[in-house]
């Protein structure tokens, strides 16, 4: 589950739908990424990071 992305979105006060519209995806796709059920492309990761004012590391890097 990608909690980091969910928390970053909530921190920005955005709904899944608002984020989806901003990055050219659907609400379902955002939900799937947050639930860890879909691995987005690098292009979409970058778009999400930009929309949430975070780096790729902040959102998608997992400590070993």
């Amino acid at each position: 589950m990608n909690q980091k992305m969910k928390f970053a979105r909530m921190e920005m006060g955005m709904t899944q739908e608002q984020l989806a519209n901003q990055v050219g995806a659907t609400r379902q796709t955002i939900g799937l990424i947050e639930k860890g059920k879909y691995n987005p492309s690098l292009q979409l990761c970058i778009a999400i990071a930009k929309a949430l004012n975070k780096t790729l590391n902040d959102l998608f890097w997992e400590e070993l």
Binding site: K6, Q16, R27, Q28, G31, K35
Partner: peptide, 9 residues
């Protein structure tokens, strides 16, 4: 059904 499962606001 799928949307409800994924909705987590």
């Amino acid at each position: 059904k799928k949307n409800i499962e994924l909705l987590d606001e």
